[in-house]
Design a protein around this nucleic acid. Structure first.
Length: 840
RNA sequence: GCGAAAGUGGCGGAAUCGGUAGACGCGCCAGCCUUAGGAGCUGGUGGCCUUUGGCCGUGGGGGUUCGAGUCCCCCCUUUCGCACCA
């Protein structure tokens, strides 16, 4: 039996790693010493590390929340160890339909439920060791918070950015409230997935569309995940084209405007289609057609958005009986109504060019309307001629190409010109007769913020018969949400607060006559659109934001959150910030310097859900393994920005690792005490190189949120220390403790102290720097290939010449065998990397 | 339909200015230590074969190259956005 290698493991059982003890001790220390509370008014090197605040559900903290927070926390602690003053607050996004529905279900009032949930969340978060500054939290349901949400509404109102208007809005029949466009996913409510209908109601809108172009332009330079920027770009949906006017009769003042991206095809516009909701619909309907039109409009009104927006259904529509004038040809074209034209996009009316638009083509086929080709495929007609035949070709689809190669036909003076260039010329000529102009259209809509629900911030407005809409004076804020015992939403679109005379009866702030409060509450997304602005100023009671602190801490340095908010929260908060910037309240227009999305956790290969019964309860694992192990496992199980698969068995790897780190540090200190030195002897060259390589790797990995490879590198480094087969030395383990600290903060605080450091490590320790000259060895082992296949390796000194390497390679048995009887025709040598011998 | 990302051992995943594929971890196997072990330690672990050696191998098929997981073309699959957007 070979001699046993000395174990790094310690024999003694005192000083066993007990996560529970260690974690409780350091959590108490942090609290007592205010370790996680940077000086908001004086910090020299501020770094605002923000994570999306949770909705405090009754089920408690979900492992998905904790995954997100842990990654953000590792990043924040890393920045702190690198010398920044890190402000890392947390709060609760506690208003909203979700809480309200849950409260209705269990019969507990949200005003009782939410504080209990928040307490529970707070307890769970504190256990997990996240570096929150608990002295600066927000709770969106606290009147001291939503007072400023209401204040923001007033600022936008005064600036003309909030407007009450009657509009066809999305109505969720199950949540019994209107929804913003962003909350309708494929025709369904994002909350409850019911098919959304449409209602015409008077609602408050924020004019986010006024910011469309700026919101789009800034996407070019903000440092965000590319996929998120893409999602916003798509959502804003800019398209360039022209607005053209089809007069109701030759020379009439009255006209139907259409938006088109293909003005080059206007000569092929053989009919006009209005959305069923278009205000001019009845302008075209003679008595003879009234009945059929009525019938069609009634039928479409019945459809919910899921039905209405099905793209695979047959096109349906009805002839109005009227006609309008094609501005290019001067021809009279029939006006139709069809539900494939949407009131919410463009002008709610289109010029139909069946030959060159697939939808128009299908509609024309269904109703036997004329199809006139005006764009010829490249090469099919001679440039400059107009010889194409006017009969409809036997095509079964619209021809939609339009590059510089396609040529216009049947287009009067524009025939024979390239499609792209002719389009601009046509618009120009129509503009001369005031029948059109170039225009840009956006998909983005104004943000409907009214909600006919109870659990939200009241919209601070009063309606007076004398004065009209009167904003609540700022000095009267907050408009407090009263405790209503009956707060069920109703089908009629009337908000629960409308049943409380005590709430809505009010004197007009301007003239003093009896008036009525707005009884709708605002969208939860308004609460969350500005919460990060409040964090540094939570202890300031006379304004939303303290100017000095805002300047010091904002914009946010790093924001980490889920991609699901790519077009909701992230777009709204950009808009609110931009508006506040224009109003002079902040001096930046983009709220987040950097945004990174994290991935999603799945469990054993499938999505976590209550119905599958595979939801991970963090408490259970923190209880059994400790928060540090749980954190390390979450960070290790996959790439943070992609997500990963949570498997119970996997947690033991990081658990063992932390135990080994504990043992290594203790045995180092014990041995050093026994030897009477500090354990601070010189490192071997190999381990020193490994250390510097590790520092480089971890520093780069943590900076780009690659926590899984970072943790792996720490494990590898510890393996290298242990493989030396002797008691670890202080210069080996000390950097390990510092670099592991972001991941396992409690453990490392303890070990830092064991090493003789002054707590807190996060105040005292300095993130190690690597020495580039120590990254590589003097001698390197490089692979030798013959015809690209690996045949051996050789050890040569760094920088060795091709000849030296080849000589060494020739001495290798495995290489020589493959060179027998053949001629080396070519030698590829990449210095310090590889030698490839090409033989014939 | 459009757009984006991704397909690597039994599993989670490393490695993409082209240069020793499978780091790290789980699991598994063997040994040690133990009254015992679901603890700990040591070693091994992509597949196949005629096993001091060799062949194959990163979804499939082509290509470029001395050399391809990585670059190019085609195809398949999955996931996620958007979706009658005029």
């Amino acid at each position: 039996m070979a001699a046993k290698r000395p174990h790094v493991t310690r024999e003694s059982t005192e000083n066993m790693y007990d996560p529970k003890d260690v974690e409780e001790r350091w959590q108490a220390f942090w609290k007592q010493n205010r370790t996680n509370e940077p000086s908001l008014s004086q910090a020299a090197d501020p770094f605002f590390n923000l994570m999306m605040f949770p909705y405090p559900s009754a089920e408690g903290l979900h492992v998905g929340n904790l995954y997100a927070f842990t990654g953000a926390d590792v990043y924040g602690r890393f920045q702190r160890l690198r010398g920044h003053d890190v402000f890392q607050p947390v709060g609760f996004d506690a208003f909203g339909i979700h809480s309200e529905n849950f409260a209705l279900k269990v019969g507990i009032h949200p005003m009782d439920l939410i504080p209990a949930n928040i307490m529970n969340f707070t307890r769970q978060l504190k256990r997990s060791g996240i570096m929150y500054d608990w002295t600066h939290t927000v709770d969106t349901t606290d009147p001291e918070y939503y007072r400023w949400t209401q204040w923001i509404f007033l600022q936008l109102y005064k600036a003309g950015l909030a407007e009450k208007k009657e509009a066809a809005v999305n109505w969720c029949p199950s949540c019994k409230t209107v929804l913003a466009n962003e909350q309708v996913i494929s025709g369904r409510c994002e909350r409850c997935h019911s098919a959304v209908g449409q209602k015409t109601l008077s609602q408050w809108f924020f004019k986010i569309t006024q910011y469309s172009q700026r919101l789009l332009d800034n996407l070019e330079w903000i440092d965000w995940s590319e996929t998120t920027r893409m999602a916003q770009r798509n959502w804003i949906g800019r398209s360039e084209g022209a607005t053209l006017r089809f007069q109701v009769a030759e020379g009439s003042e009255e006209a139907v405007s259409v938006f088109t991206t293909r003005p080059d095809t206007v000569y092929g516009a053989t009919f006009l289609v209005l959305a069923p909701e278009h205000p001019l619909v009845y302008r075209f309907v003679p008595e003879s057609h009234r009945a059929t039109v009525d019938e069609y409009l009634a039928a479409t009104a019945e459809l919910d958005l899921v039905e209405r927006k099905k793209t695979d259904k047959e096109k349906s529509g009805v002839f109005t009986g009227g006609s309008a004038v094609n501005p290019a040809t001067g021809e009279s074209v029939p006006v139709w109504i069809a539900d494939y034209v949407l009131m919410e996009y463009g002008t709610g009316a289109i010029m139909a060019v069946p030959a060159h638009d697939q939808r128009d083509f299908e509609f024309a086929r269904a109703y036997d309307l004329p199809i006139r080709p005006v764009v010829a495929p490249a090469g099919s007609v001679d440039q400059g001629s107009d010889s194409a035949d006017l009969s409809v070709p036997a095509i079964d689809a619209a021809f939609v190409e339009h590059s510089a190669d396609e040529v216009l036909i049947n287009s009067g003076p524009f025939s024979g010109r390239a499609a792209t260039e002719a389009g601009e010329a046509i618009v120009e000529s129509l503009a001369e007769r005031d029948l059109g102009e170039p225009s840009v259209n956006y998909r983005l809509h104004d943000w409907c913020i009214s909600r006919q629900r109870y659990w939200g911030s009241p919209i601070p407005v009063v309606y007076c018969d004398e004065c009209g809409i009167v904003p609540v004076p700022e000095s009267d804020l907050p408009v407090v949400l009263p405790r209503l015992e009956q707060f069920k939403p109703s089908d009629d679109g009337i908000a629960p607060l409308a049943k409380s005379a005590e709430f809505y009866r009010v004197e007009c702030p301007e003239c003093g006559v009896e008036a009525r409060r707005e009884t709708d509450v605002s969208d939860t997304f308004l609460d969350s659109a500005w919460y990060f602005l409040r964090y540094p100023s939570t202890d300031v009671s006379d304004r939303a934001m303290d100017a000095d602190r805002t300047r010091r801490w904002l914009p946010v340095d790093m924001y980490i959150g889920g991609e699901e908010h790519a077009v909701l929260h992230l777009l709204y908060s950009r808009f609110i910030t931009m508006a506040l910037s224009d109003l002079g309240y902040v001096d930046f227009e983009e709220p987040y310097k950097k945004f990174r999305k994290h991935g999603l956790l799945i469990r054993d290969g499938s999505k976590m859900s209550k119905s599958r019964g595979n939801v991970v309860i963090p408490d259970q694992y923190i209880g059994s393994h400790g928060a540090d192990t749980f954190r390390a496992y979450l960070m290790f199980l996959g790439p943070y920005t992609v997500g990963g698969d949570f498997r119970d068995q996997g947690i033991s790897g990081p658990h063992r690792f932390l135990h080994k780190v504990w043992d290594a540090v203790h045995s180092c200190v014990e041995a050093a005490a026994g030897a009477g030195d500090g354990g601070g002897r010189e490192l071997d060259e190999d381990i020193e190189r490994k250390l510097h390589q590790t520092i480089k790797q971890i520093t780069e990995d943590f900076a780009e949120l690659s926590f899984n490879t970072g943790v792996a590198a720490l494990m590898e480094y510890l393996n290298a220390i242990r493989a030396q087969g002797r008691t670890p030395l202080r210069p080996e383990v000390e950097p390990l403790v510092i670099m592991l600290a972001p991941v396992a903060p409690h453990l490392c605080e303890q070990l830092w102290e064991v090493l003789g450091g002054q707590p807190s490590l996060f105040d005292e320790a300095v993130w190690p720097e690597y020495d580039a000259s120590k990254l590589v060895a003097d001698s390197v082992r490089i692979p030798v290939q013959v015809n690209g296949k690996l045949r051996g390796t050789v050890q040569v000194s760094r920088g060795a010449s091709a000849d030296t390497v080849r000589d060494a390679a020739m001495a290798e048995e495995g290489v020589r065998r493959h060179l027998e009887g053949v001629e080396v025709r070519k030698t590829i040598h990449v210095q310090d990397r590889l030698l490839n011998l090409v033989v014939g």
